[in-house]
Amino acid sequence: MIAALRAEWTKTRTAGGGAWLLAGAVAVTVALSAGIAAATHVSAHSGQEDPTKVALGGIYLGQAVVAVFAVLTISEEYGTGMIRVSLAAVPRRLVLLAAKAATTTALALAAGVLAVTGCLLVGRLMLPGAGLDPAHGYPLISLGDGPTLRAAIGSVCYLVLIGLLALGVATVVRDTAPAIAVVMGVLYLPPLLAQAFADPLRRHIEQIAPMTAGLAVQATATAHSEPIGPWAGLGVLTAWAATSLLLAALLLRRRDA
């Protein structure tokens, strides 16, 4: 297993594209958060706002880049035929999948920590300019605040789980473009579909869809308006990622390479 891990790490390190994609994920996330912060204006008549959630808004887009990264870790091998070389080197297929999952976890974790830190910094610096300042009853974003810390850690976990979900899908689908399409569909379609329905159906869709459920972990001041509790929501996403990896493991074992 250690050898397989080192091999996977060496693959990621030497492919060139991976590092750029992850740097891109961080940049896109922080940039979108900055954009949202710049566009936010809060007046006295606005309802209750959630500065932490606003600051972490960039994850909405950054997750797509993390997903693409995770898809490519295996779909590119199917594309070039290198998967056969990999499986000849590591014939225990679940070990190969586990090594890929571990590498994806580690790298999504690193990118997630950077992105979330960047988002919160941007929020702390920019949001007071939008009216979300202590004078209006909004304390500055701080990791010393329990719910904010939970939102931060939860967002990092969210990105890791999205990566694992995408890795599983790509292992099942084995082809880059369709795999990316499936992942994007699973992430972004349910929230759009939900809009077509009234509560309680809309709420139920949002409770079981990976993105809406998973992102509930970001809410601090407005947690009551989320479809699902923060950790329960992350649990739903974990179930999605686990199912995806389980299916991937079954098919990887059964299918000819």
Binding site: T10, A15, G16, G17, T80, R84
Partner: peptide, 30 residues
């Protein structure tokens, strides 16, 4: 297994962006 059996199955099966040495390096690590 590569210490028991060395195989060439498909010469095209390399990731184009990786150098020859790095391709062998990840195999060596495994």
């Amino acid at each position: 297994p590569l210490r028991h059996v060395g195989a060439l199955v498909d010469a095209a099966a390399v990731q184009p962006s990786r150098t020859a040495r790095n391709h062998l390096l990840w195999l060596a690590r495994s």
